[in-house]
């Protein structure tokens, strides 16, 4: 049998191991926001955001550069306003950047895709992206297709 000292030391090591693993998992395996060092907020208005939800990814050229912070409905224009946190690493987005709501694969999550323009003026914290493409809603697409088919006949 081990002496009681050894037992207590082993128990202590065990707990220290668990705490180390806890800290590692909490810091390294979870999402503390994609943005780790500082971020700025931009917004964009869409007539329809489809199934976009807060925490959705904001990506540019397939790389995630931020997340959707919150979504509001403008009570006057009835447009959905999407607020996004963009990492400070990408502080030089041109002013004429366009935003679209896209879907990853057929069944995947919806996300905001940014397409940079060519303007030398950059977007600042609190600025709004003016060029937007709303989400494709399947029902609307089908209706559109059927109606246009009717029109041709």
């Amino acid at each position: 049998m081990k002496s009681s000292n050894q037992i207590e030391i082993t128990a202590g090591i065990f707990l220290a191991l668990a705490i180390a693993a806890l800290i590692f998992l909490a810091l390294q395996a979870t999402d503390r926001g994609v943005v780790s060092g500082g971020s700025y907020e931009i917004s964009a208005s869409f007539t329809n955001i489809g199934g976009l939800k807060p925490k959705a990814v904001v990506s540019l050229g397939g790389v995630s550069i931020g997340t959707v912070e919150r979504i509001e409905l403008d009570p006057i224009s009835f447009e959905a306003k999407v607020f996004m946190q963009i990492s400070n690493d990408y502080a030089d987005l041109p002013e004429d950047t366009s935003a679209s709501i896209l879907t990853a694969g057929i069944l995947g999550d919806q996300y905001v895709g940014l397409e940079p323009g060519g303007s030398p003026i950059v977007l600042e914290d609190g600025d709004q992206v003016l060029l937007t493409n709303s989400a494709m809603v399947l029902e609307q697409l089908i209706t559109k297709y059927l109606l246009s088919g009717d029109a041709q006949e």
């Binding site: 009681s4 037992i7 207590e8 082993t10 128990a11 202590g12 065990f14 707990l15």
Partner: peptide, 12 residues
Amino acid sequence: GETLRQIYYAGA
């Protein structure tokens, strides 16, 4: 002390 010992037996 006893609780720590039990943590050893049950946990470690």
